[in-house]
């Protein structure tokens, strides 16, 4: 472990598929199938990929909200996957998560104040109710909400405001790492940028490290220092955000980038249109998972899974083209 705050090593999450009355396991959904990456302290690591490729599952198994079926996660040098429940609960104050759905992630029966005080109560952070309230007010100010509405319930806030409350809750325990699972995907464009800016400001102010999950490439590119691209439960490419966008190596990344509509009617460009659909992670193709849709597919791709290699300094990819 070098200077990595978070280090994910060959993480696997296979959900059993059960059938019949006896609920026998008939197969596995390989939602995450051997993902490895490091996140340095203070950086933003972006994770992109299409729906169902395992981004959320990766995020949640890092935090052990679901128990990963294989691999290790090191946080600050500690092997998170080996911690006991008690130790795990302690370390949770250092790793937090912000959810995609600003409607589902707040308890509808808690006021904003209760929502923000809950983590303080769980971790015994402040002695008195007055101190907790003061801290809750501070947090609201930090995320740019007025404290006059502390006693309101979540349904009285707009999506963007709820997302701010969710961020404030994550900050309540002074975490080092925040996993943001599509924090802006459910928001309108004009509100999206408010939340992105807020995340950016908070990172500078509190020296936070982010794992930023999204399916929107322009958003990920904007906020991340380094980006990992996932396809069908595997990481296919990882690089500095600029070099990934300027020189994508993996054919999937190239297709993904070229598919993003550019808001400029005068921009003309070559477009790679992929054939076919995303295969099911319950029944992935042989060899390179991407081969049925890949335009550069070679014979070896159909049989052998490509190795994960550093192709240029700091630029990793898993593709036979670079052997």
């Amino acid at each position: 472990m070098t200077d990595a705050l978070l280090s994910v090593n060959d993480l696997k999450m296979h959900f059993p598929i059960r059938k019949g009355i006896l609920r026998r396991t008939v197969g596995y959904v390989r939602a995450v199938d051997g993902v490895s990456f490091d996140v340095k302290a203070g950086e933003t690591f972006g994770l992109v990929g299409e729906s169902g490729c395992g981004k959320t599952t990766t995020g949640r198994s890092i935090l052990r909200l679901i128990e990963p079926s294989g691999g290790q996660v090191f946080f600050n040098g500690k092997n998170v996957t080996k911690l006991s429940n008690v130790e795990m609960r302690k370390i949770r104050s250092e790793m937090q998560i912000v959810f995609q759905d600003p409607y589902g992630s707040l308890n509808p029966r808690y006021t904003v104040q209760q929502t923000l005080e809950e983590p303080m109560i769980i971790h015994n952070l402040y002695k008195s109710a007055a101190e907790r309230k003061k801290r809750a007010m501070e947090l609201l100010e930090v995320v740019g909400l007025s404290t006059s509405r502390m006693n309101r319930y979540p349904h009285e806030f707009s999506g963007g405001q709820r997302q701010r409350i969710g961020i404030a809750r994550a900050l309540a325990v002074n975490p080092k790492l925040i996993i943001a699972d599509e924090p802006v995907s459910a928001l309108d464009v004009s509100v999206q940028s408010q939340v992105l800016n807020l995340l950016d400001d908070l990172q500078k102010e509190f020296h936070l490290t982010y794992v930023f999950i999204a399916h929107d490439l322009s958003v990920v590119k904007h906020i991340s220092n380094r980006v990992g691209v996932m396809y069908l439960g595997k990481m296919v490419e990882l690089a500095e955000s600029d070099s990934l966008y300027e020189k994508p190596l993996h054919p999937y990344t190239q297709a993904l980038l070229s598919a993003v509509p550019i808001p400029n009617p005068e921009a003309k460009r070559e477009r790679i249109i992929l054939q076919g659909d995303l295969p099911s992670p319950a029944n992935p193709p042989s060899g390179c998972y991407f081969h049925p849709r890949c335009q550069s597919c070679m014979d070896i791709c159909k049989t052998t899974a490509p190795e994960w290699k550093e192709i240029e300094p700091g630029h990793f990819a898993a593709c036979h083209l670079y052997n």
Partner: peptide, 24 residues
């Protein structure tokens, strides 16, 4: 997700069951 969020905050099973799920 608010149940997941409580878990992520380190809430124990008892708290999740009786303070968060039960009222809902």
């Amino acid at each position: 997700e608010y149940v997941q969020a409580a878990k992520a905050l380190g809430a124990g099973s008892f708290r999740i069951l009786f303070r968060i799920i039960l009222p809902n």
